[in-house]
Amino acid sequence: PQEEYKKRAKKALKKGDEDTAREALKRAGLSPDQAEEFIRRFL
Protein backbone atom coordinates (compact mmCIF):
# COMPACT_ATOMS: atom_id res chain seq x y z
CA PRO A 1 0.00 0.00 0.00
CA GLN A 2 0.91 3.63 -0.46
CA GLU A 3 1.70 4.23 3.24
CA GLU A 4 4.17 1.35 3.29
CA TYR A 5 6.10 2.80 0.35
CA LYS A 6 6.12 6.24 1.97
CA LYS A 7 7.58 4.71 5.14
CA ARG A 8 10.22 3.02 3.01
CA ALA A 9 11.01 6.32 1.32
CA LYS A 10 11.46 8.06 4.69
CA LYS A 11 13.80 5.31 5.86
CA ALA A 12 15.87 5.68 2.70
CA LEU A 13 16.01 9.46 3.10
CA LYS A 14 17.24 9.11 6.68
CA LYS A 15 20.17 7.19 5.22
CA GLY A 16 20.62 9.84 2.54
CA ASP A 17 19.53 7.47 -0.22
CA GLU A 18 17.37 9.66 -2.44
CA ASP A 19 17.33 7.24 -5.39
CA THR A 20 15.73 4.48 -3.32
CA ALA A 21 13.30 7.03 -1.91
CA ARG A 22 12.29 8.14 -5.42
CA GLU A 23 11.75 4.54 -6.48
CA ALA A 24 9.56 3.85 -3.42
CA LEU A 25 7.53 7.02 -4.01
CA LYS A 26 7.05 6.08 -7.66
CA ARG A 27 5.68 2.73 -6.50
CA ALA A 28 3.42 4.59 -4.08
CA GLY A 29 1.86 6.18 -7.15
CA LEU A 30 3.35 9.65 -6.81
CA SER A 31 4.33 11.58 -9.90
CA PRO A 32 8.00 12.61 -10.19
CA ASP A 33 7.04 16.15 -9.16
CA GLN A 34 5.16 14.90 -6.12
CA ALA A 35 8.09 12.67 -5.21
CA GLU A 36 10.51 15.61 -5.39
CA GLU A 37 8.16 17.65 -3.22
CA PHE A 38 7.98 14.83 -0.67
CA ILE A 39 11.78 14.54 -0.59
CA ARG A 40 12.27 18.31 -0.29
CA ARG A 41 9.80 18.48 2.57
CA PHE A 42 11.51 15.62 4.34
CA LEU A 43 15.08 16.89 4.03
Rank of each mutant, 00 (worst) to 15 (best):
G29K: 03
D19G: 10
R8P: 02
K15S: 13
E3D: 12
Q34N: 05
R22T: 03
I39W: 02
D19M: 12
K11G: 07
G16H: 06
K11V: 14
A24H: 15
E37Q: 08
G29N: 04
F42K: 02
A28R: 01
A28E: 02
T20Y: 09
G16I: 02
E4M: 11
K6Y: 15
R41S: 10
K6P: 03
A12N: 03
E3N: 10
R8L: 15
R8N: 08
E36S: 07
A12M: 05
E23S: 07
Q34H: 05
A12V: 03
A9N: 01
L30D: 00
F42E: 07
K14I: 14
E4H: 09
D17T: 02
K14Q: 14
E3K: 09
R40K: 10
Y5N: 06
K14M: 15
K11P: 01
K6A: 07
L13V: 03
L25Y: 01
S31C: 08
A12C: 05
I39P: 00
E4V: 08
R27I: 09
R27W: 09
R27E: 12
D17F: 05
K26W: 07
L13K: 01
I39L: 04
E4P: 05
Y5P: 03
L13Y: 02
D19L: 12
G29C: 03
F42D: 02
R41T: 09
S31T: 14
K14H: 12
L13E: 00
T20H: 06
E18R: 12
A24R: 03
R41V: 08
L13T: 01
A12R: 03
G16T: 02
Q34L: 06
E37A: 11
A9S: 02
K26A: 14
F38S: 00
A35N: 01
F38G: 00
K11E: 15
T20I: 07
Q2L: 12
A21V: 03
L13Q: 01
E18I: 15
A9D: 01
T20A: 14
Y5G: 06
K7H: 08
T20V: 08
L30Q: 02
R27N: 12
K10N: 07
K11Y: 08
I39K: 01
K10L: 15
